Simulated assay, not measured.
Amino acid sequence: MLKKKITKILVGTNNTGKLKEIRDLLPKNLKIYSTSDFKIKSPIENGKTFEENSLIKARYFSKKSKMICLSDDSGLEIDVLEGAPGIYSARWGGKKGDFVKATKKVFKELNKKDKNWRIKKIKARFICALTIYGPNQKTINSVGKIEGYISPSIKGENGFGYDPIFIPKGKQVTFGEMKASQKYKIDHRFKAFKKIKKFF
């Protein structure tokens, strides 16, 4: 087991939305670094699962920075699309990770499957895999999931990525319509983080 708690960490992501969310989850007394502090570009993510990609990122950023790193790989799975976009969630937005483009692609694919999808409950879930990796550090993994449905239209300006089209189960609004403080209490990243926060 760990000899001591982690006191400083690199958040291994070049996604500013993700960086903000993870920073908000981490304890306030932790010294947090971002990849921009080291000018590190992102690695090629060639894993087959969220967990594999999360580990690839954590290991890569840790070795480049010589720091303990926390990396996240997350995405949206839609049942009728056989789990797509899944680990390719960001890549559906093209090279620039444009989520307006990615969201349009989700709607286009759903239209191909079923013209009437907007009046049905299209089951989906957000998944987040977190990995802590670093020198003299036991590798720690956790996964969080939140079930929900695809909104028939884009709603809300908050959050990032697919948040404006995801309605969590039991709610009437999308993540994009929620205040960050509401979303953070229930989302996939929070659920994954809850499992590892004892290490900080």
Rank of each mutant, 00 (worst) to 15 (best):
G75C: 11
L110Y: 09
N15G: 10
S74K: 00
K191H: 03
I78E: 04
I146H: 00
F199E: 11
T103G: 04
K198A: 09
K39I: 08
K197W: 02
S151R: 09
S65I: 04
S54T: 04
V11I: 15
A102E: 05
G176R: 05
Q172Y: 05
K121F: 08
V100L: 12
K31G: 04
G75M: 11
D187G: 05
Y60R: 02
K96E: 15
L55H: 07
D187L: 05
K95N: 13
K115F: 10
T35Y: 05
P168W: 03
E45I: 08
I196H: 09
G156I: 11
K20N: 12
Q137R: 13
G134T: 02
W117V: 03
E82L: 10
P168N: 12
T16Y: 13
K95G: 07
A84S: 11
D72L: 01
N116S: 13
V80M: 14
W92D: 08
K194I: 06
D24T: 12
F190L: 02
K96T: 15
F200Y: 09
I154D: 04
K18N: 12
F166Q: 00
K31F: 11
G176C: 10
I132Y: 08
K39Y: 11
A180N: 10
E157C: 05
D187E: 15
G17D: 14
F193K: 03
T139P: 05
F107C: 05
